[in-house]
Measured scan of single mutants.
Amino acid sequence: EADPRLIESLSQMLSMGFSDEGGWLTRLLQTKNYDIGAALDTIQY
Rank of each mutant, 00 (worst) to 15 (best):
Y34H: 04
N33R: 07
T26C: 04
T26R: 06
M13C: 04
L10N: 00
L6H: 06
E1F: 12
W24L: 05
S19N: 15
E21M: 08
S11Y: 10
Q44Y: 15
K32Q: 09
A39T: 13
L14N: 08
N33S: 08
A39E: 01
A38D: 08
A39H: 01
K32G: 05
I7V: 14
S19P: 04
R5K: 10
L10R: 07
L14A: 11
I7A: 13
N33C: 09
L40T: 04
S19K: 12
P4K: 12
Y34E: 02
M13H: 01
M13Q: 01
S9G: 10
I43F: 06
L29K: 00
G22Y: 09
R5I: 06
I43H: 03
L40K: 04
R5M: 08
T31Y: 12
T26D: 03
I43D: 03
K32N: 10
D35E: 08
M13V: 03
A2G: 12
Q44W: 15
G22D: 12
S15Y: 06
T31E: 15
I43W: 04
M16P: 02
I36D: 01
A39D: 00
T42I: 11
E21R: 08
L10Y: 03
I36S: 03
S15R: 13
M13L: 09
L28N: 00
L28Y: 02
L25W: 00
L25D: 00
S19C: 11
D20T: 01
W24F: 07
L6M: 08
I36W: 07
I43E: 02
E1V: 13
S9Q: 04
L14M: 11
S19I: 11
L29Y: 00
S9H: 04
D20Y: 01
L6Y: 08
I36E: 02
F18Q: 01
E21L: 09
S19Q: 11
D35L: 04
F18H: 05
D41F: 12
R27I: 10
S15A: 14
I43Q: 02
L29W: 00
S11D: 10
D20F: 02
T26A: 08
N33Y: 07
R27E: 10
D35K: 03
L10C: 04
A2C: 13
E8I: 12
L29D: 01
E8P: 08
L29S: 01
P4N: 11
Y34D: 01
D41Q: 14
I7Q: 14
A39P: 02
Y34T: 02
E21V: 12
R5P: 04
R27S: 09
L10P: 00
L40G: 01
D20W: 01
M16N: 04
T31H: 14
L25V: 06
G23P: 01
T31C: 15
Q12H: 11
I7R: 13
R27Y: 07
Q30D: 05
Q12A: 13
L40S: 03
L29F: 01
L10A: 01
M16L: 11
S19M: 09
E8N: 11
L14H: 09
Y45C: 15
G22I: 03
S11F: 12
I36N: 02
M16E: 04
Y34C: 08
G22Q: 08
A39K: 01
S19H: 12
G22A: 07
L40H: 03
G37V: 14
K32A: 10
E1W: 11
Q30P: 03
R5C: 08
T26L: 04
L10I: 08
D20V: 02
Y45N: 15
R5D: 06
A38V: 08
G17P: 01
A38I: 08
E1K: 14
L10T: 02
I43G: 01
S19E: 11
Q44H: 15
G23M: 07
P4C: 08
T31P: 00
D3Y: 06
Y34V: 01
G22P: 01
D35W: 04
G37T: 14
N33E: 10
E1P: 14
D41P: 02
A38F: 05
R27C: 12
D41G: 07
N33G: 10
F18P: 00
P4S: 11
Q44T: 08
Q30H: 11
G17K: 00
G37I: 14
L28K: 00
A39F: 04
L14Y: 08
A38S: 09
E21W: 07
E8K: 14
R5E: 08
N33Q: 10
T42W: 15
A38M: 09
Q44M: 14
L25G: 00
S9K: 06
G23W: 04
W24D: 04
L28E: 02
L14T: 09
L40A: 03
L40F: 06
N33A: 09
L10M: 07
F18S: 00
D3R: 06
L10E: 00
I7S: 11
D20Q: 03
A39C: 09
W24M: 05
Q30K: 13
S9W: 06
G23D: 04
L29C: 01
N33W: 06
L14Q: 09
Y34N: 08
L28H: 02
G17W: 03
K32S: 11
S9C: 13
D3F: 06
S19L: 11
I36P: 04
M13S: 01
S15M: 13
T26E: 04
D3P: 07
L29E: 01
I36L: 08
G23N: 07
S15T: 10
F18T: 00
G37D: 14
L10Q: 01
G23I: 01
E21K: 10
D41I: 13
S9A: 14
R5N: 08
E1H: 12
T26I: 06
A38P: 03
W24V: 05
D35G: 02
L29R: 00
Q12P: 01
R5W: 05
T31L: 13
D3W: 05
G37Q: 15
D35T: 03
Q44R: 15
L29T: 00
T42V: 13
E1L: 12
E8Y: 10
T31M: 14
L25F: 01
M16A: 05
L40D: 02
D41S: 11
E1D: 14
T31I: 15
G17Q: 02
S11N: 14
L28I: 07
G22F: 08
W24A: 05
Q30N: 08
Q44L: 15
I36V: 15
T42F: 15
T26M: 04
Y34L: 05
E1T: 14
I43L: 12
S9F: 09
S9M: 07
A2M: 14
F18R: 00
